[in-house]
Design a protein around this nucleic acid. Structure first.
Length: 704
DNA sequence: CTAGGGTTAG
C-alpha cells in the first residue's frame, strides 16, 4: 500500500472554549465546558510524533506465521479413511437426527440442537454421516451459545469422521472458532486452509481485532494485500477498528484513502467505522466530516458520533446531537440511551437523565443491562441511593459492572457498611468480583473509616479471590492509612509495593500530608508527582504552594519560572449547576461583574450560617489554588453556584454541582452549614471526589 | 449460490 494523503485536512481538534468574562452566565449556547480537566475523561494519546511513515517501517511486515501449536487440530484428518466413513451411512435414523438438529436451529433452540448432536455423537462412533447443511446449522448453534465445548465437539466430529468441508464450510468453521474466542485454534485453521478467499481473510482479521491483537490484524491485512490486493467494504470496516484500537490515526487515514479509491467509503458500515476511528484517534472534526457526508444517517451513525463527542468531553455537544437525532426521526436504541445516561452523569443533569430513563422504558429497552447499569451509576453517583437501589433490584439480569456501580455509589457517599453488605451479598449470589469491585469496596472502607475491614479485604483479594492488587488498590489503602494520620505506614506501603509507585499512590500520600500538615513528606510526594507528570499544570501549583508554605523561596521561584517558560496558564476555577434543565456556569474571578442578586443572596446565606458557627476558614497551608484568592473566597464559583441554585429551586430540590477544581476548605465548611441552615441536600463532584452535604455533614468526612 | 463488517455500562 502506498503512502496516501490524508483524505481530510487534519484540522485541529475542536478548540476548547474561551471562557466568558462575566462571572455568571446563563448559557444559551452551550459552551464547551466539560474539558478534559473535568472528569476523568479518557485522554487520547498523541501518536503523531511516532507515526510518520508507512506500515512496513512500523514493523508491520507481512510475515507468514508458521507453527501449529496445539495437537488435536493438526491431526488425524487423513487417518480415518474416506471410503470407510462414507459407507457407514448410519441406519436411517441418522438423517432423521440431522434433520431434527437443523430444525431446532431454525427455531433458535440452540441448546437442544447441541444436545441432540451430543446424542448422535455418543451413540454412533462417527458412523453417521453428517452433511454440510447440518454442520452449517451446528455452527450457528455454537456461535449463538458461544459454546467452546460445542465447537470442539462439532469440529472434532468433522475431523474424526473424515468429512472434507468445502471452502464455504471451512469459512463457517473458522467463524465459529473466532466468535467463540478460540483464536489460537482459529489461527491454526486459517493457516492450514488449502484455499482462502476474501471471506476467510475478513473473518480471521475480525477475530484478531475482537481479541485486541490489532498489530496481528494489520500484519495479516498486509499479507492479504500483497497476496491478492483485494479488499471489500467489510475489510475496511474491520481494519478501521484495528486503527481505532491502536489509537493510531495514520493507518486509519491510509485505509480511508484506499476506501475512497475503491469507492466503498460511503458504505454505511465503513462510514460508522470511520467516525469511530477518527474520534478514538483524537480527531473529532474528521469524525464530524465523515458523519456530515454520510448518505444515510443511521442509528449507529448517530450513536457513534455522539459517543465521539462524549469521549472528548464535549458532553453538551453530545447532548445537543442527541436532541437533533430525536428530531431527525431516526430510531433510538439501547446504545443511544446508555450513552446519554452516561453523559448526564458527567453533566450532573438529573432532568435529562430522567428523560432518558423514560425514553428507555418507552422504547422498550427497559430491560437492557447496560443502560440500566448506567442509570444505577447515575443515581448512585449523585447520592440518590434509594433510586439506584430500587432500579438495581428490579433489573432482571445483573453483571459485575452493575454490582460495582451500586457498591461504589454507597462507598462514595460514605455509607461503607451498606457497601460491605452488598459486597457480601454479591459473593453469596456467586457473582465473581473483579479488580473494579475491590476498588469500590476498598475506597468505601477508606471513606467510612472501616480500616480493619479494609485491610482484611485487601489481604484476601489476592488469596481468596485471585485478583492481584493493582496500583489503584494500593492508592486506596494509602488513603485509608492517611485518613488515620498514619503517614509513615502509608509511605511504607508505597516503598514496599511490588511495582513502581504511580502518580495516584503519591497523590494519596500528598493528600494525607496536606490534611495532617506534614510538609517534609508532602514536599517529597509533590516532587515525585511533578517529576512523573511534568506537563500537568496542577502539579506545578501544588509544588509551588508547598515551597511557599515552607519558606523555600528559591525553589518556588524556579518552579514559577518553568511554569512561565512552558507557557502554561491557569484557568479560572469554575462550577456548573443545572437549574430548571439549563446548565449554568460560574467562575471565581472578577467579582465586579457578579450578578448583584446572587451576591446579595449569598451574603444573606453567610449571615445565616454564621449563626450556625461559621468562621471563615483560612484555606489549608497547602492549598490547590493561588493564595491571592484567599480574601476572595466569598466569590468562589461553588458558593455562587449554590447561592444561585438555592434561589431558583424549590426547597425540596437537591442541588448537584460539578466543578473543575478541588473544593476549598472554606467553601466546604460553608456548604456544610448551608445544608444545615436550609435543610437542602447538595452534592458536589469536584476534581477528586463526590461530596454529599446534608444536615451540616459531608459524606467525605472532611477528608479530601 | 451460501459466509465475513459499524455504536453502549463500572
Amino acid at each position: 500500500m502506498d503512502i496516501a494523503l490524508s483524505p481530510y485536512q487534519n484540522k485541529s481538534v475542536v478548540e476548547s472554549s474561551s471562557l466568558p468574562s462575566t462571572d455568571v452566565k446563563n448559557i444559551q449556547e452551550r459552551p464547551l465546558v466539560s474539558g478534559p480537566h473535568l472528569l476523568n475523561i479518557r485522554k487520547h494519546k498523541t501518536h503523531a510524533s511516532r507515526i510518520t511513515c508507512s506500515f512496513v517501517e512500523h514493523g508491520l511486515h507481512p510475515k507468514p506465521k508458521p507453527k501449529p501449536l496445539k495437537s488435536g487440530y493438526e491431526v488425524v484428518k487423513k487417518e480415518a479413511s474416506l471410503e470407510e466413513s462414507r459407507q457407514m451411512k448410519g441406519s436411517g435414523s441418522s438423517s432423521g437426527l440431522c434433520g431434527q438438529i437443523e430444525k431446532l436451529v431454525l427455531c433458535k433452540r440452540y441448546r437442544d440442537a447441541l444436545e441432540m448432536f451430543e446424542i448422535l455423537e455418543s451413540e454412533c462412533q462417527y458412523d453417521v454421516h453428517v452433511g454440510k447443511s447440518t454442520y452449517d446449522a451446528l455452527v450457528d448453534a455454537c456461535i449463538s451459545l458461544k459454546s467452546i465445548r460445542g465447537v470442539k465437539r462439532v469440529f472434532g466430529y468433522m475431523v474424526n469422521s473424515g468429512f472434507e468441508p468445502d471452502l464455504y464450510l471451512r469459512n463457517r468453521v473458522l467463524l465459529m472458532h473466532v466468535k467463540c474466542g478460540m483464536m489460537i485454534d482459529a489461527r491454526m485453521l486459517f493457516d492450514e486452509m488449502p484455499e482462502r478467499n476474501l471471506v476467510s481473510w475478513n473473518t480471521i482479521m475480525a477475530g484478531l481485532v475482537d481479541s485486541g491483537d490489532y498489530m496481528d490484524a494489520f500484519r495479516l491485512f498486509l499479507s492479504m494485500w500483497e497476496e491478492q490486493s483485494e479488499a471489500s467494504s467489510r475489510t475496511f470496516a474491520t481494519m478501521m477498528r484495528a486503527s481505532a484500537g491502536l489509537e493510531m490515526i495514520f493507518p486509519g487515514q491510509q485505509l480511508h484513502a484506499c476506501a475512497i479509491k475503491m469507492d466503498v467509503s460511503q458504505d454505511i458500515f465503513v462510514s460508522c467505522a470511520l467516525i469511530d476511528m477518527y474520534s478514538k484517534c483524537g480527531s473529532i472534526t474528521d469524525a464530524q466530516c465523515v458523519f456530515d457526508i454520510m448518505p444515510e444517517k443511521t442509528t449507529v451513525g448517530w450513536n457513534t458520533i455522539i459517543a465521539g463527542y462524549a469521549l472528548h468531553g464535549y458532553s453538551e455537544e453530545a447532548l445537543d446531537l442527541y436532541y437533533e437525532m430525536q428530531d431527525s426521526g431516526v430510531k433510538m436504541d439501547h446504545f443511544t440511551f446508555s450513552m446519554i445516561v452516561r453523559i448526564c452523569t458527567r453533566l450532573a443533569s438529573l432532568e435529562h437523565a430522567k428523560q432518558a430513563h423514560a425514553g428507555l422504558v418507552r422504547h422498550g429497552f427497559g430491560q437492557d443491562i447496560v443502560a440500566n447499569t448506567a442509570l444505577v451509576d447515575f443515581y448512585s453517583k449523585w447520592g440518590r441511593l434509594d433510586d439506584a437501589r430500587n432500579l438495581f433490584e428490579k433489573m432482571p439480569l445483573k453483571n459485575v459492572i452493575s454490582w460495582n456501580a451500586l457498591i461504589a455509589g454507597y462507598g462514595k457517599h460514605g455509607r461503607g457498611i451498606e457497601a460491605l453488605e452488598l459486597f457480601k451479598r454479591m459473593i453469596d449470589e456467586r457473582m465473581t468480583p473483579n479488580h473494579v469491585t475491590f476498588l469500590a469496596v476498598l475506597s468505601a472502607c477508606s471513606y467510612s473509616g472501616l480500616s480493619d475491614q479494609g485491610w482484611e479485604i485487601f489481604e484476601s483479594m489476592g488469596t481468596d479471590f485471585k485478583v492481584k492488587p493493582r496500583a489503584m488498590h494500593y492508592a486506596c489503602m494509602i488513603e485509608l492509612l492517611g485518613r488515620e494520620g498514619l503517614l509513615d505506614e502509608a509511605f511504607a506501603l508505597i516503598r514496599d509495593a511490588p511495582f513502581k509507585p504511580t502518580v495516584n499512590m503519591w497523590a494519596a500520600l500528598l493528600t494525607a500530608c496536606r490534611v495532617h500538615k506534614n510538609f517534609e513528606l508532602g514536599k517529597f510526594a509533590a516532587e515525585k508527582i511533578y517529576g512523573m507528570e511534568p506537563e500537568k499544570l496542577s502539579n506545578y501549583i501544588v509544588l509551588l504552594n508547598i515551597y511557599n508554605s515552607c519558606g523555600k523561596r528559591e525553589e518556588a521561584a524556579s518552579v514559577f519560572h518553568t511554569l512561565k517558560k512552558k507557557g502554561l496558564r491557569m484557568l479560572p476555577a469554575c462550577t456548573w449547576i443545572d437549574v430548571k434543565k439549563q446548565q449554568h456556569m460560574f467562575i471565581s474571578v472578577d467579582k465586579s461583574k457578579s450578578d448583584v442578586q446572587i451576591i446579595k443572596n449569598l451574603k444573606k446565606l453567610m449571615l445565616k450560617i454564621a449563626n450556625h458557627g461559621y468562621v471563615p476558614k483560612k484555606n489549608s497551608l497547602l492549598p490547590d489554588v493561588d493564595e491571592q484568592e484567599e480574601q476572595m473566597s466569598l466569590y468562589h464559583s461553588e458558593k455562587l453556584a449554590v447561592s444561585y441554585g438555592l434561589m431558583n429551586t424549590t426547597s425540596s430540590t437537591q442541588l448537584q454541582l460539578v466543578q473543575s477544581h478541588r473544593i476549598c476548605a472554606d467553601c466546604h465548611l460553608a456548604v456544610k452549614l448551608m445544608t444545615k441552615a436550609t435543610g437542602r441536600v447538595i452534592v458536589v463532584r469536584d476534581a477528586s471526589r463526590f461530596h454529599r452535604f446534608e444536615d451540616g455533614k459531608c459524606s467525605c468526612g472532611d477528608y479530601w
